[in-house]
């Protein structure tokens, strides 16, 4: 049994939040550089160049790439042989968020209740936490700062087995098309297929935590991802919807076993310009 003090978690979360907001991860930057080379629309190319310049300015000046610094979503894989001392895990995570957002010139974007007064919590808490128990005695936290624009354009639907793969593909493409410029393209498309009503959304979000353009180890999924990115980039939406061939930087699909009567699909959109993903193991 390994023991760690809960303050270690707070410090790690604080660091993740700051770095994610100030510094574009290498895979994001690389994807934008490649996109800027390949984009044929002049206005689209200009947008991509502007977004790369934005990443440079944010990193140098230590300001957030986007003013919408997002909802903090954390997937925590907790080793079964790990023990936290000194307080509650979720409190420690929220304390890390609080310190980063109030001390790091990040916008507080969370309201306490969804309907009614909608009072800003003023420290961007609480974070959304997904806890998983895993082997070993380590803690891995994967953190996303999820902006409202792209999140609002995400969709889920309970298809039925008869809709088949075609139904799934059409739903994904339609969702990206309907989102258009609202999701700040180029986007990364996270798709979850299978599971239940509640789990499929999480699966789609988990799909967004893969490295951009990383290859899936299941050949059937690889094929689905390939077809989806082609169809999406044929839509013509382009960078910021000003027209072009690069609407998505990547499509990541994850699947799960499901009920004999069901075919749930969720599409979680991630804006490329503010794709803020960080991971740490302690």
């Amino acid at each position: 049994m390994r023991e760690i003090d809960i303050s270690t978690v707070t410090e790690a979360v604080q660091r993740l939040c700051l770095e994610a907001n100030y510094v574009a991860a290498p895979d994001v930057r690389k994807a934008f550089e490649l996109a800027a080379e390949r984009e044929v629309s002049p206005l689209g190319k200009q947008v991509l160049t502007q977004l790369l310049e934005n990443m440079r300015v944010a990193e140098v000046e230590r300001v957030p790439m986007c003013q919408d610094t997002g909802t903090v979503v954390i997937f925590a894989d907790i080793g079964q042989d790990l023990h936290f001392s000194g307080g509650l895990f979720s409190d420690a995570v929220n304390e890390g968020v609080r310190r980063a957002y109030t001390g790091g010139y990040l916008r507080s974007s969370i309201v306490d209740r969804p309907v009614g007064k909608r009072t800003n919590t003023r420290d961007n808490t609480p974070a959304v936490l997904h806890l998983h128990l895993v082997d070993g005695d380590q803690l891995t936290m994967t953190m996303l700062a999820k902006g409202g624009g792209a999140e609002n354009m995400s969709q889920m639907r309970m298809l039925t087995p008869g809709d088949g793969l075609d139904g799934v593909l059409n739903f994904v493409v339609e969702t990206v098309e309907r989102a258009g410029p609202n999701a700040c393209p180029p986007v990364i498309v996270g798709v979850g297929i299978g599971g239940t009503f509640d789990s499929v959304g999480t699966l789609a979000k988990q799909a967004l935590t893969r490295e951009i353009g990383s290859e899936h180890d299941d050949p059937q999924i690889q094929e689905i991802e390939g077809e989806l990115i082609q169809r999406i980039n044929n839509l013509g939406i382009g960078p910021h919807g000003f027209g072009g061939r690069i609407t998505a930087l990547a499509v990541h699909v994850e699947i799960a076993p499901t009920h004999i009567a069901s075919l749930p699909v969720a599409v979680n959109l991630q804006c490329g310009p503010a794709a803020r993903l960080r991971r740490v193991t302690i």
Binding site: V47, Q50, L51, E53, N54, V57, A58, E61, V63, P64, M65, C66, Q67, D68, G149, G180, P181, N182, C184, H240, G241, F242, C271, G272, P273, A274
Partner: peptide, 29 residues
């Protein structure tokens, strides 16, 4: 940034207005 509704587009025509987009996600710049 993003789409406007038909009603808003109509209002722009009626009141001689314009809707501009700035590039979403370039807030630092």
């Amino acid at each position: 940034k993003g789409y406007r509704s038909d009603v808003v587009r109509q209002a722009l025509v009626e009141h001689c207005g314009v809707y501009f987009a700035a590039v979403g996600g370039s807030g630092a710049l």
